[in-house]
Amino acid sequence: MNDLFAALLLGIIEGITEFLPVSSTGHLLIAEHFLGRHYSALFNIAIQAGAILAVTLIYRRRLWGMLLAFAGHDAPASHDPLGVASSPAQSRDYAFKLLAAFAVTAMFGLLVKKLGWELPDTVRPIAWALILGALWMMVAEQLAARRAARDGERTSVSWTVALLVGLAQVVAGVFPGTSRSAATIFVALLAGTTSRAAATEFAFVVGIPTMFAATGYELLSLLRHGGVGQEDWAALGVAFIASAVVAFVAVKWLLHYIQHHRFTWFALYRFALGAALLLWLPLGS
């Protein structure tokens, strides 16, 4: 397969799957397996950066409002992509909880790195993670729906929700196929933010500093160890642009979708993909 076309394909896969609850890391590892090639760490950093850029643009007003409120400046009410207004005081509180979630992720994430954890290079454990994650999503959605029916729709993010979301990001990073967005959204729903839109927004926004930090950490590590090397810059550029454009469209679509639908179809897709991989792959794959 042509290198540029393969890069375009991987950029599209990253853009679609990074923020949908289906696991981007899992899909990229599966794609690389079937393409018969392994891409550099810098390539993976670039396509992830494209997806981060897209969601940052979508939430730019919300982020700017939080930044001004956090710095103590007077600012007009900011709006999230769904049109919900937040006062400066609410934005400041949201920013502190965002930082708390990020701090938990950073602390435990660095601990995992120090312990020498590495991503698996076979598809079978990812297939099982897709299946188990699908079952978790279906059960969690039912439990969250019951809680919402009992307690009403809650859009606020508590400190408990923030800390658990931070921990969920670490778990998702350790087990490819789990999906960072799925883990964080459903943890938020079960911990008390019963609004799907609010839970999804917090999961997406907390992913911005988390993914920027992880990307920066990996990039500095590559530069320190001379890992940039002989990179195919054309392929990297194609993949970055594809990831950014597709992620922008995917996130916009998901934010509209969740206003009227549950996550059931994503769980069914994960289950079907995981089962298909287990049936078709050789035992050692």
Rank of each mutant, 00 (worst) to 15 (best):
M107E: 08
P282K: 11
G274A: 12
I30S: 04
G26I: 08
F70V: 02
L164Q: 12
A46M: 12
L277I: 06
D80Q: 06
A129T: 04
G109D: 09
L35G: 11
A250N: 00
R92Y: 03
V139E: 04
L279I: 14
L68I: 01
T193A: 15
I13Y: 08
T25H: 02
L111C: 13
V238S: 08
L98T: 00
A144K: 09
G192R: 09
R270A: 02
A250E: 07
V165P: 00
F102H: 07
L53T: 06
F248L: 14
T25W: 01
P120D: 13
G65E: 06
S243E: 09
I45H: 00
L135G: 15
V228H: 04
K97N: 03
I131W: 04
R224W: 11
G166W: 08
A168L: 03
L9Y: 14
S40F: 00
L189F: 01
A140G: 12
S156K: 02
L115D: 08
F5P: 11
A46F: 06
F175M: 07
L119W: 02
A267E: 02
F240T: 12
H79T: 03
L63G: 10
A100R: 00
A127I: 05
K252T: 12
A144F: 07
G15V: 05
D232Q: 10
L4V: 09
P76V: 09
D3T: 13
Q230A: 14
W280T: 11
R224L: 14
A85L: 07
T56W: 12
L4A: 15
Y39C: 05
R196D: 11
V187G: 04
P81M: 05
L119S: 15
L254E: 00
L279C: 13
A41V: 11
L130P: 05
F34L: 05
F70W: 13
P88C: 10
R150S: 12
Q90I: 00
A213W: 00
I30Y: 03
A198P: 04
S86E: 12
V206S: 14
R61S: 13
L164A: 13
S40T: 07
I16K: 06
T178P: 03
M211L: 15
V165N: 01
F204M: 08
A49M: 09
A95S: 03
A106E: 10
A149V: 03
G65Y: 01
L82P: 00
A214H: 02
V205T: 07
A71H: 10
V157A: 04
A203R: 03
L167N: 03
P176N: 08
Y217W: 13
V157L: 12
H33N: 14
S87A: 09
Y59C: 11
L35P: 04
G284H: 14
I12Q: 08
G83E: 06
E231Q: 14
A71Q: 12
W265H: 13
S243Q: 08
S86Y: 10
A95Y: 05
A140T: 11
